[in-house]
Amino acid sequence: MNVRSLPVEQLVEMSAAGDRRATGRLLTIVERGGPDADHITELTHAFSSRARVVGITGAPGAGKSTLVARLIAGLVADGEHPAVLAVDPSSPLTGGAILGDRVRMSEVESVAFIRSVATRGHAGGLALAIPGGTRVLAAAGFDPIVIETVGVGQVEVDITAAADTTVVVVTPGMGDAVQANKAGLLEVADVFVVNKADRPGADDTRRDLELMLELSHVTGQEDATYRPPIMMTNSLDGSGVGAVAAAISAHRLHLVESGMLADRHERRARFEVATRIQARLDITVQEALAGDDSMSLIRAVAAGQVAPTTAALSIFPFSPVL
């Protein structure tokens, strides 16, 4: 039987009954976007906040995939049914991608569900594909769902930050305390992992992160009830990985006990709804720009005859900020 010819209602039923071909197919449709993807979202929306969602992010080569494979193996041993969405970049030139995360996950790929996701080009595509894919996996009975990204670019940071628990993986030699204090990825961490902790400089990296967290206290950014732990790991030999799993569970418990879990779910929902609205606005903006009047205004801006502020207001006369 070729699942590709089946309607999405039937695929959702088969997926819930454990047919992995159907789950794989649904993820493809969700990733592609469009009316069928929206239909799947309507059929599975009750699962929006059902599964635990863990984001794991860090620079390429930090050891995320190997760490994820270890965490997944531990979850399976505990009787859980985990799934992974492993995001890798598409080429901006050709749209192609080499998705290599499964290479590190070969030991768990028959017991867990692992899906490689290319970032693809279009704005908002990934930002909708990930929550959509998370729901498909939750509706298929998977929990927790791990989202692995390289954390480059705002969309990827947003996606990871929209997880219930965000793990940021760093390695020795990533830079000094000044780098750690630059705004960005590190601010969204609920759990820090210093991977390759057997390498020289691991303790320096730990100290820099500690200092950064201390400064959060000085500036009042700190959450008085929770401080992100810094875990030292070697994901190749597995040392420290059990402690990371425990830290993720502890953060989960903190969210539940403090009532902050609902906040995280709302943050995720807001992000997804906002992305959908933005996608529609984008189309409206492109349409507004396509007219002849707009073209002549744009040429006038390029020639230095009209200010871009004037042209923008004239083409698209909304000024909600002013």
Binding site: R20, R21, T23, G24, L99, R115, S116
Partner: peptide, 23 residues
């Protein structure tokens, strides 16, 4: 194209699992 690279020493089972999950 999107290439899902499995690398060395795969089994027929691991390739089937990947083909299903990756559609």
């Amino acid at each position: 194209m999107e290439v899902i690279y499995l690398g060395l020493r795969q089994t027929t089972d691991s390739i089937v699992a990947a083909a299903e999950q990756e559609d």
